[in-house]
Nucleic acid binder design. Structure first.
Length: 415
RNA sequence: GCGGUCGUCGCCAAGCGGUUAAGGCACCUGGUUGUGGUCCAGGCAUACGGGGGUUCGAUUCCCCUCGAUCGCCCCA
């Protein structure tokens, strides 16, 4: 058994039992996206490591400890840990802005993050993402969020909460950070070790801490006041209010969560997450936000954009798994040459058809048809070749009937 | 990377130091000269994730390892 090769840790096989439901999920999502005139973009599964270092951010966990990187002839390459950086790179490289803005793009595919697997978290996982590039308006934010909501609804997932926040413009971030540090400084000694580390590295993240003693500090009136009343730029605040308005008008339930932070450096202003309580600790089913600085950072003209990504595996656990379509016809036969011709005839009509290949007696073949829950069973033996009349039976109603079929070379090529 | 739990056939699952390692489902083969699955008979783990140890003896005890799972971290 030690010889047996297993799939790598944190990866999954989608076997035929599940592959239909898997395809269904993708089909529904893609259909919804395309109805909103989003167009697919396919980018490589690996990119220059520097793309993610610059795009996602040097200080993020993703870049620091989760990348699958490898060297090839002096180049450092990395399996994409997320989709936006690659899409933006492609947008810049292919000069998609020349085709007019805004650009509405979506992608779907595998992502890779070297993490300890747990429920809803794999090392290879899949994301469906949408990017709206070229606009920095509340309406654009709303379109993006509404679109995500529509995809989720189309999948039959509505038992979710949408959390929304604004993290201001890049210029505001240091201001916010310093103000927060100043506010929490007096409590530094009582904070947990993690928070003491975060204090310098990523103070905003402290607010998410699960340690009770830390939480009592972070939920104090002083901190609460600070969060509610921190003065973002007037533009950002104004835009955020309008966005909330549009979402309300469209009946999307949301809550403003001033503590929500996102792990990628490129976010600015609007950030949001759709969260479920049904998946344990990894409840974020869709996460996104605005990234106005990213395109310029990656060498393009300064262009605002917003986008999101959904975790396919997480969605998959939340949706109903539809049955695969039934087998329309089963062909019992000992004359395969002619049976294939007839099968093709049926398939041209869009029917799902299987030809029995076993060569066993017809009784056994009939049994096989029953096990497969075939709707109709056609029998093609030497008699049928001769007469050109094919008997068939509807296995759902039990009714028998027959039809005429012109076999190619039927009379000359019988076995 | 850190902690907890777990690992017996494709799936569910008994056994918990000495068993031929139950059983069910699924699957396969045959019983039926050409009209159906539910019937009957049989098959289907030289083996209990892998490796090492303790023991006269280990699926049952110990260690390591691999994997799963839950949580931390973080995110989709």
């Amino acid at each position: 058994m030690s010889q047996k090769i297993q799939r790598p840790k944190g990866t999954q096989d989608v076997t035929p039992e599940l592959s239909h439901a898997w395809k269904h999920l993708q089909d529904v999502a893609i259909h919804t996206l395309e109805l909103a005139n989003y167009k697919a973009i396919h980018t490589p599964i690996f990119e220059a490591t520097s793309l993610f270092a610059r795009g996602v951010g040097e200080s993020t966990d993703i870049v620091n400890k989760e990348m699958y990187s490898f060297e090839k002839s002096d180049r450092s390459l990395t399996l994409r840990p997320e989709g936006t950086a690659g899409v933006v790179r492609a947008f810049v490289e292919n000069k998609l802005s020349q085709h007019g803005l805004p650009q509405r793009l979506y992608y779907i595919g595998a992502m890779f993050r070297y993490e300890r697997p747990q429920e809803g978290r794999q090392r290879q996982f899949h994301q469906i993402g949408a990017e709206l590039i070229g606009l920095d308006t509340p309406a654009a934010d709303a379109e993006s969020i509404l679109l995500a909501w529509q995809v989720l609804k189309a999948l039959g997932i509505s038992d979710l909460r949408l959390e929304l926040n604004t993290v201001g413009d890049p210029d505001d971030r240091p201001r916010f950070r310093e103000a927060l540090q100043a506010l929490l400084k007096p409590h530094f000694e009582t904070l947990c070790a993690d928070c003491q580390r975060r204090f310098e590295q990523n103070p905003i993240r402290m607010l998410d801490c699960k340690v009770p003693t830390c939480q009592t500090i972070y939920t104090s009136d002083a901190v609460e006041d600070f969060l509610q009343n921190f003065a973002w730029s007037p533009e950002a605040s104004e835009a955020f209010e309008q966005l909330c308005h549009i979402l309300s008008v469209n009946g999307v339930p949301f809550t403003v969560n001033r503590r929500m932070v996102r792990g990628l450096d490129y976010y600015s202003r609007t950030v949001f997450e759709f969260i479920t309580d049904k998946l344990g600790a990894q409840g974020t089913v869709c996460g996104g936000g605005r990234y106005n600085g990213l395109i310029e950072e990656l060498g393009g003209a300064s262009t605002p954009a917003i986008g999101w990504a959904m975790g396919v595996e997480r969605l998959f656990k939340l949706i109903e798994h539809p049955e695969a379509p039934a087998l329309d016809a089963y062909i019992v036969t000992d004359c395969h040459a002619e049976a294939f011709a007839f099968a093709e005839h049926l398939r041209e009509q869009g029917l799902k058809v299987e030809v029995d290949l076993s060569g066993r007696n017809f009784g056994k073949q009939l049994q096989a048809a029953g096990k497969r829950s075939a709707r109709h069973v056609y029998t093609i033996g030497s008699q049928e070749l001769e007469s050109g009349v094919i008997p068939f039976k509807n296995f759902e109603t039990g009714e028998s009937s027959s039809l005429n079929f012109h076999f190619p070379n039927a009379l000359t090529h019988r076995k």
